[in-house]
């Protein structure tokens, strides 16, 4: 029995845990090229061009070609870089992303080979705080990378991203408080269970929380219109300017991985996880597919916003985060708390 899941009512045997970790790892890493491909293809369509269409059918193998290209490239390191931190930083980024993905539930507990298996990595009692803890550590991946590169562009990009991430983390956390108050639990599977019994997905009663969460998620994943950490017109490429080859591939994958995780949390918290609308009750094996399709749709929203909105200025970014989103999220939590108390 692992440490974090100590309060779960049943114990999963060690081989199931290892198998689950492997499957989640593989699914997560298959989502990354998918997200990358969707990003490029949809961006192409939005801009009235085809996007990548040379490698494989409809250009579907383009991400594989990109990854292979990056892996066989030279690992360049600037002379001013701090060796071990320079190598460690991308590893922190990708590691925290992988671990945070473990809490996204793909289905409820099911019977496999006579044992109870939850279709998720872990379901700790602290729930979504687990993901927040690891995204808090992920900031070090960016900061150490930018600092250890020994380059001013990297350094400024890292400082920008650190300021942006810790500013929007507050709003992101507070925007989920409404959901947590409504459901009375932090556990992601129980939140989905609450949406099932209530018969309503939480993005309807928690619409303000949902909007704040999505805006904060754009900022947390450094996606446009909040891609200031890598504003290419000002900073070359931000914190990963000096990186190349496999290490750059790690940063790149971690970025898309964060998008997948944010989509997964949004799907679980606001869009009913593995539930289908209109009371359709499919067999259990459909559940993970439903979650994956929903995650893909949320990623499409990410790309849509990227194609629509221009990048914010730095002061606009900060005033939006602190003067608009934070009061909105606080008011949402307060109103939800009052309503829940009154209606009970």
């Amino acid at each position: 029995m692992s440490l974090v899941t100590a309060t779960v009512g049943y114990a999963e045997s060690w081989w199931i845990q290892i198998l689950k970790s492997l499957i989640i790892f593989i699914v997560g890493f298959s989502m990354v090229p998918l997200a990358l491909m969707m990003d490029r293809k949809l961006m192409g369509r939005f801009q009235n061009r085809f996007g990548p269409n040379r490698v494989g059918p409809f250009g579907a193998l383009q991400p594989m070609a990109d990854i292979f290209k990056l892996l066989v490239k030279e690992e360049f390191r600037p002379r001013t870089a701090t060796g071990f931190l320079f190598a460690l930083a991308p590893a922190i980024s990708i590691l925290t992303a992988c671990v945070a993905f473990a809490i996204v539930p793909f289905g409820n507990t099911v019977d496999i080979f006579g044992t109870q298996v939850g279709l998720y990595g872990i379901d700790p009692s602290i729930g979504v705080l687990f993901a927040f803890a690891f995204s808090a550590i992920a900031v070090y991946g960016l900061m150490l990378g930018g600092w250890a590169s020994g380059s001013k562009y990297s350094f400024l990009g890292a400082m920008r991203s650190a300021a942006q991430l810790i500013s929007y983390e507050v709003s992101m956390g507070l925007s989920l408080v409404g959901v947590i108050i409504t459901c009375g639990t932090l556990s992601l599977t129980e939140i989905v269970g609450h949406q099932e019994s209530a018969g309503m997905w939480l993005f309807i009663p928690q619409f303000v929380g949902f909007v704040v969460f999505m805006v904060a998620a754009f900022a947390e994943t450094s996606r446009p219109p909040f891609d200031l950490p890598e504003a290419d017109a000002e900073l070359v490429a931000g914190y990963n300017t000096e990186y190349g080859g496999g290490r750059f591939a790690l940063y790149y994958a971690a970025e898309y991985f964060h998008m997948v995780i944010a989509s997964g949390i949004a799907v679980t918290m606001f869009f009913g996880g593995w539930l289908l609308p209109f009371g359709i009750d499919p067999p259990t094996w459909v559940d993970p597919i439903v979650v994956l399709v929903k995650i893909t749709l949320v990623i499409a929203i990410f790309v849509w916003v990227r194609a629509t909105l221009p990048r914010l200025r730095y002061d606009q970014l900060m005033s939006l985060g602190w003067k608009v989103l934070l009061p909105l999220a606080t008011a949402n939590a307060l109103v939800t708390a009052i309503l829940v108390t009154v209606l009970d």
């Binding site: 974090v4 100590a6 309060t7 700790p124 009692s125 602290i126 705080l129 687990f130 927040f132 803890a133 995204s135 808090a136 550590i137 900031v139 810790i166 983390e169 956390g173």
Partner: peptide, 13 residues
């Protein structure tokens, strides 16, 4: 668990 998560989010994070 909660104290551990708070420690990481607030202090380390």
């Amino acid at each position: 668990e909660f104290v551990a998560a708070a420690q990481v989010v607030v202090y380390a994070g």
